[in-house]
Nucleic acid binder design. Structure first.
Length: 427
DNA sequence: TCTGGGGTCCTAGGACCC
DNA sequence: TCTGGGGTCCTAGGACCC
């Protein structure tokens, strides 16, 4: 019995493409999208790639070249990207009953049962439809394992004649394809493994496919062994159409400038904690374990590096923000050392559990119903009138010292009435 | 002189992903 | 001056138990 055909649909240059949808004059121009805090390059249009801009390039080091080539630069606009992502995914859902949303710009589709339509033709139709309904260009790779579908997707992008669709279900085509892929470009092979594999003389995906799985396992553990199996057409990573429960929630940000003062850092931490609480409640969850971390700028040549983290188990699982703020603050005080130039802080909530049980009845005389109503009301106000409309005093009231930089954000075209795109009828 | 063995649970840290 | 943020999985090793 054949395993199901999997298609990996990947949006091309997703963030850059999102910017283009509502600003068509950007078509054909080099675009870069920056990370939070306008720190580094995280998305590039084809034109920018051709100019030699690299993923992860620090923005401040690229500025010269950006100016020189007239590249258009955007701060990241996650509200827009998230919304465009949902549009793409729901479009894809009309082509298959079973789909796994793998990331903001990628989905695996189960195409079993659609073979009679001709896989290449069907994929081409998916591609056309997504483009027409959302304005986002996608590439599609098909194979019998996720790892091979990833390879196929890569080839769909790299092979101009493929028209954005690459079928790797034909076993006789696989080896030729794998010979064209560097081992470091295989999904799951990162820097460490690339270094080791190369030293072993394994430089292409095909060589990795043919390597002795036991030998690979000795260095790359079961993950590496599975990878070799997947390259050999043995499916180990199955389609997960049901989103598994979240294991942790992290909120962290770099500060817009250095902070040295505990109170100021705590204001940032309180803001992050509020956000983490919102995420918890939105997912119907409570957390029983919390980690807080701080760090200075790891790239600085003038200031010494310092970073630390500390965790604690909470006396009871909670999603009540005042509880979270209290414990986060206690932990921050434990790791804060005066005298450093801090650049970032954050928290992680772990050991998440569903909030449907009344677990805290035994602990104290607190009125949980009232607490939950309070959080619900706060959440509703902050959704309706904007984030942090209602906030905790510990967050500070003036413009916070830690505010991130985002100088070049585009409009929230899809989620804000005041920022809708305008169309003009021409002659 | 000679000081067990096997199991579980938990956490930290590494590697990788987008 | 200026280098992101949020995840998952796996393994080793310590604590603990019998």
């Amino acid at each position: 019995v054949r395993p199901p055909v999997l298609a990996l649909v990947d949006c091309n240059n997703f963030y850059a493409s999102c910017e283009r949808v509502f600003q068509p004059h950007l078509e054909g121009k080099p675009i870069l999208v920056l990370s939070n805090n306008d720190g580094c390059v995280i998305a590039r249009s084809d034109e920018s790639k051709a100019l030699g801009f690299v993923m992860g390039d620090p923005y401040h080091l690229a500025k010269e070249k950006i100016k020189q080539h007239g590249v258009l630069v955007f701060s990241s606009n996650y509200t827009l990207y998230g919304h465009m992502s949902r549009r793409v995914m729901s479009t894809l859902n009309t082509f298959t009953p079973e789909l796994e949303v793998y990331s903001i710009d990628e989905s695996f589709l189960n195409l079993a049962g659609f073979e009679h339509r001709g896989l290449t033709a069907y994929a081409a139709e998916i591609r056309r439809t997504v483009r027409q309904w959302t304005g986002i260009p996608v590439s599609i790779g098909m194979a019998y394992t996720k790892t091979l579908a990833k390879v196929a997707n890569r080839l769909a992008k790299k092979t101009p004649a493929a028209n954005g669709v690459y079928d790797l279900t034909d076993p006789t085509a696989i080896d030729d394809a794998l010979a064209r892929v560097a081992v470091g470009d295989v999904w799951g092979v990162g820097q460490q493994s690339t270094r080791w594999l190369t030293a072993q003389g394994i430089t292409t995906a095909l060589m990795l496919k043919r390597a002795d799985p036991k030998r690979i396992r000795a260095h790359m553990h079961v993950v590496g062994e599975r990878l070799v199996a997947e390259l050999n057409g043995v499916s180990c990573l199955h389609l997960e159409s049901v989103t598994p429960a979240r294991k942790g929630i992290t909120v962290s940000r770099s500060f817009g400038r250095y902070l040295t003062d505990l109170t100021e850092i705590n204001e940032a931490l309180v803001a992050h904690t509020m956000r983490a609480g919102e995420k918890l409640r939105r997912g119907g969850l409570m957390a029983a374990y919390i980690t807080v971390f701080i760090q200075t700028n790891k790239f600085s040549k003038v200031h010494p590096y310092f970073g630390d983290s500390v965790s604690t188990r909470l006396p009871f699982p909670t999603n009540y923000t005042p509880d979270l703020i209290k414990y986060a603050h206690q932990l921050l005080k434990k790791i804060y050392q005066p005298g450093f130039h801090y650049k970032k802080c954050g928290l992680m909530l772990l050991d998440l559990q569903t909030a449907d049980l009344e677990r805290r009845d035994f602990f104290d005389g607190r009125d949980q119903d009232r607490e939950q109503r309070l959080m619900k009301t706060m959440d509703r106000i902050n959704v309706t009138y904007g984030r942090k409309t209602i906030r905790f005093a510990a967050m500070g009231s003036r413009r916070p010292a830690w505010t991130t930089v985002a100088d070049k954000v585009s409009q929230r075209f899809t989620t804000n009435w005041l920022e809708l795109p305008t169309a003009k009828a021409g002659q």
